[in-house]
Write a protein that binds this DNA or RNA. Structure first.
Length: 876
RNA sequence: GCCGGGGUGGCGGAAUGGUAGACGCGCAGGAUUUAGGAUCCUGUGGGGUAACCCGUGGAGGUUCAAGUCCUCUCCCCGGCACCA
């Protein structure tokens, strides 16, 4: 008998499948019979495929293969998330231009993906750094710009001094470090492109419950959006009984407003700016103190703020705000515990019912009033942090609210404040607008130019197009029309002189340059290439300059799932000057309609509020623009757990604990690697690498090899076939099928192992042996193909065959059932599935073991058909 | 602090309220081998010679029957967090 030597045949099949294009996407005939199975595409950065990649790609591959065999048209593509920091940092480290390095990495990834037998349709391979691809990314940028969702403004941003680039909120880790490089982050004031994702907060929240996603991810998105209903209350600010200004505070607890004793505003608040600019007069000493405090807090990094903990700091402005409810004059303080980005950047302090307010009041000797009594009716003074009462209770000391519970009181107060014109109901979000500029080389150039001449004249794209686009396309959708108009109004001043480049000049190519390293100035390396930056104004034809910031890493991945539906080997926008809008209208819309949404998306949970939120946002906006006909891109989502090293640490070069898939395949073959990673644990759980367990997977495959090459296990004569084994085959097929669709690959493989164990000393007909081979094939595509074509001499690939049907014969099946006495198993008997209850009980009662317990006792019994018998002894 | 997910042999993990520990690893004994590795067979939750008893983080409860359902509680992991 030949030995199982995967190296002998695996590479043969790779070539064969490639040549015959057996994984080519079938076109969709019936939308109900299509499956778009997508796995998050990789950054082709460092040293090739990680065993963690192997796990996620194999799992998704199993699903795709299964649906193909079930007769679905399956779209299962892959590409490269080539732009962005990971690739660029790797290139800098290797002292290579990313334009040269990245394609090389891609080739290596591709070789390894084929090596482990992934069934991608390589004709649809795409790269986000391909000009044919980013021509469309840039075009989409322009569409979002036109919708008013993208605008440029001076903003304080998170800035990574190491990567020398601005970052989005989501890229900053809780400890104040950069998600990509782990270095501490500071803030910097930079002109930035801002994506107004907050306008889609409600929209993104609304359809969340239509998604079949892991609960945790849905919760994370919900919390990240963080919708809060509250009210903005505007207070008059007075000095010596004279009104000098107003301050508006956002609160979700207006019910406690009779207990408000002070106002705190963020150091960035405009009232503070007015003081510092002298627009509001204060004495010299106060101004100095305010100035000092503000400077100090703005200089703090996030790390400093965290290190400082909950210790409150602040400075008194000398002003008072008047609470209209009771005429109380509340001192106005400045403190950096108030966030300028949330609500209005101003907080009304209710120290009796908010721990932070309490800490502040306590530290600066401000009065503390109780306006809610707790569950136990406690209405005593609040002296300690423990006494602060934030939860349920009944209102006291609050005039017309007294006696109401806090929820009712909140509503009554809101109505009252609105009626009086002192407040207005508002919704606030935790979600912040998305900073879309990166001061880096390796990204899509932003397709915008700035014309100083037009800027001076106050001409903006919005002012030029006010009457055409907006009116025609969006007027029917009132809410959207209103939003767009509002955004245009807000943006037009900042955006004077900014125009998108003409569509026919897309793609705006990223120039190949020698100096691609980030500069310390906070400017992109592109800013130094004058021949690239200088251009003509598309409006007045005078000299203009290009935007030199690039788009963030996330841009390309926000629509790649749409691209796969129509992409082909040659790229798509290959003819110079081909209009993307025409391409979209003719080709894209149509293919997207056929394939989208993605039926099943697989990826790591780390993208919960990054890629998964950004992509949803793009699709929502594209849907509003009528560029796609659906609102949610990913109907079902599965997560994958990480693959750790054997020591339960993350694999890293510096720790020397990295497992290279190339080595594993060389020694054990791709199938063993696949089976091992699918078998180790449930798919969404993390696993630690174990060479021993890998051996187990290898042994399993070896056993299969032997069985299929042994005349003791196979027969041409159906009569010689073992009937119990045949029955087991049927349950195995059913179980594997069910487990694949439930992402329980581990138990699917366990079941197949069980079947093979039983098979070792029994015979199966060739016809049924082929069925088992098919069931195994999504997991182990190489060995199954080899046996299929060499042992059974089949001419067409097993991967083009159809999934076996389950035929369960129920008659005359012998099964074992336990017999309990008082809930404890005392014996196990064998019965026929069709036996009557009476017959079964008779067998049970004839058991000596059972008789021992029932002798001279009164009892009743409970019989669950084909499951269990329980004899219950009755007390006298 | 808030929101999610979990606690089952020596280990990874199985169990529509119905035989707890499938399957794999490891371990033990045996076969084969000059030896080791590899391979194959048998056994393997704990206690007990045995009959049996005890066992799914802990304490209660519901049920003929609870890892699974309910109440309380402890611990671990992930996310968010000075968000008013």
């Amino acid at each position: 008998m030949t030995k199982y030597m995967p190296a002998k045949f695996e590479s043969k099949w790779i070539k064969n499948w490639d040549k015959k294009k057996i994984y080519k996407t079938e076109s969709v005939k019936d939308k109900k019979k299509k499956k778009y199975i997508l796995v998050m595409f990789p950054y082709p950065s460092g040293s090739g495929l990680h065993v963690g990649h192997v796990r996620i790609y194999t799992g998704t591959d199993v699903i795709a293969r299964y649906f193909r065999m079930k007769g679905y048209s399956v779209l299962h593509p892959i590409g490269w998330d080539a732009f962005g920091l990971p690739a660029e940092n790797a290139a800098i480290k290797a002292k290579k231009n990313p334009q040269d390095l990245v394609p090389r990495n891609q080739e290596n990834f591709k070789r390894q993906m084929k090596m482990i037998g992934l069934s991608y349709d390589w004709d649809r391979e795409l790269s986000t750094a391909d000009p044919n691809y980013y021509a469309i990314t840039q075009w989409l940028f322009i569409q979002f710009f036109k919708l008013g969702l993208l605008y440029k403004t001076q903003t304080p941003v998170y800035f990574c001094p190491f990567c020398k680039t601005g970052l989005a909120e989501e890229e900053v880790l809780p400890d104040g470090t950069h998600e990509r490089c782990g270095k501490p982050i500071t803030r910097k004031l930079l002109p930035q492109w801002i994506f107004k994702i907050t306008d889609y907060g409600d929209s993104l929240l609304k359809t969340l419950n239509t998604l079949d996603w892991p609960k945790g991810i849905l919760e994370m998105q919900k919390n990240w959006i963080g919708r809060k209903e509250g009210i903005e209350i505007t207070y008059d600010v007075v000095q010596d009984n004279e009104k000098v200004d107003t301050i508006t505070c956002f609160t979700t607890r207006p019910d406690t407003n009779f207990g408000a004793t002070f106002i705190v505003i963020a150091p960035e608040h405009k009232f503070v700016t007015k003081i510092l600019q002298g627009k509001i007069k204060v004495d010299k000493k106060t101004k100095e103190k305010v100035d000092e405090y503000v400077k100090k807090s703005l200089a703090k990094t996030d790390l400093d703020r965290i290190a400082e903990g909950k210790e409150k700091t602040g400075v008194f402005t000398g002003f008072y705000a008047v609470n209209n409810l009771n005429g109380r004059k509340m001192p106005v303080w400045i403190s950096d515990f108030v966030l300028s980005e949330f609500g209005t950047g101003a907080v009304v302090g209710v120290p009796g019912h908010d721990v932070r307010d309490f800490q502040f009041a306590k530290k600066f000797g401000i009065e503390i009033i109780r306006v809610v009594k707790d569950k136990d009716g406690n209405a005593g003074p609040i002296k300690d942090e423990k006494d602060v009462q934030e939860d349920e209770g009944i209102m006291i000391n609050s005039e017309f609210l007294n006696g109401l519970n806090i929820h009712k009181a909140t509503k009554v107060m809101m109505d009252y404040l609105e009626k009086k014109g002192w407040g207005e109901r508002k919704v606030s979000y935790h979600l912040r607008d998305w900073i879309f500029s990166r001061q880096r080389y390796w990204g899509e150039p932003i397709p915008m130019v700035y014309c100083e001449h037009c800027a001076k004249k106050g001409i903006s794209w919005y002012s030029l197009h006010k009457n055409d686009v907006l009116k025609k396309e969006y007027q029917s959708n009132t809410k959207l029309y209103q939003n767009i108009t509002e955004r245009w109004g807000k943006n037009s001043k900042d955006m004077a002189g900014w125009f998108p480049i003409e569509e026919k000049s897309l793609p705006l190519k990223l120039p190949y340059v020698d100096n691609y390293k980030p500069s310390a100035t906070g400017q992109s390396p592109l800013a130094h290439i004058t021949e690239w930056t200088q251009t003509k104004c598309p409006v007045c034809g005078r000299k203009a300059v290009r935007e030199t910031d690039t788009m963030p890493n996330w841009a390309g991945s926000c629509w790649y799932f749409l691209a796969f539906t129509f992409w082909n080997k040659e790229g798509v926008v290959k003819k110079k000057g081909e209009q993307v809008s025409r391409l979209w209208a003719n080709k894209v819309k149509n293919s997207v309609k056929k394939w989208m949404p993605v039926d099943w998306y697989v990826g790591g949970a780390e993208h919960a509020v990054l890629h998964l939120l950004y992509s949803r946002f793009w699709v929502h906006a594209l849907n509003d623009m009528n560029l796609v006909n659906f609102r949610e891109p990913f109907m079902k989502l599965s997560n994958v757990g990480m693959v750790l090293a054997g020591d339960h640490k993350k694999m890293s070069k510096s720790l020397g604990n990295v497992i290279n898939p190339d080595d594993v395949v060389k020694e054990f073959g791709a199938d063993a690697l696949r089976i091992y990673e699918m078998f180790m644990a449930p798919f969404d759980q993390e696993i630690a690498w174990s060479n021993k367990a890998l051996q187990g997977a290898y042994r399993f495959l070896k056993k299969i090899w032997q069985i299929y090459h042994s005349i003791d296990n196979l027969t041409n004569n159906a009569k010689d076939e073992d009937k119990d084994l045949l029955a087991k085959l049927q349950t195995t097929i059913a179980k594997v099928e069910q487990d694949i669709t439930n992402v329980k690959f581990n138990t699917a493989i366990a079941k197949m192992m069980e079947f093979v164990n039983e098979w070792t000393n029994k015979k199966l007909s060739e016809q049924n042996a082929k069925k088992f081979l098919k069931v195994l094939s999504p997991f182990a595509p190489f060995i199954t193909e080899e046996i299929w074509q060499s042992v059974f001499e089949e001419k067409e690939s097993i991967h083009l065959s159809t999934w076996p049907k389950v035929v369960i014969k129920t008659t005359n099946l012998r099964i074992k059932i336990p017999i309990q006495v008082d809930g404890k198993v005392r014996d196990i008997i064998t019965i026929n599935k069709e036996m009557s209850e009476k017959a079964v009980i008779e067998i049970a009662m004839n058991s000596q073991k059972i008789q021992k317990y029932l002798k001279n006792k009164k009892f009743k019994y409970i019989y669950i058909k084909n499951k269990i018998i329980n004899f219950v002894l009755l007390k006298k």
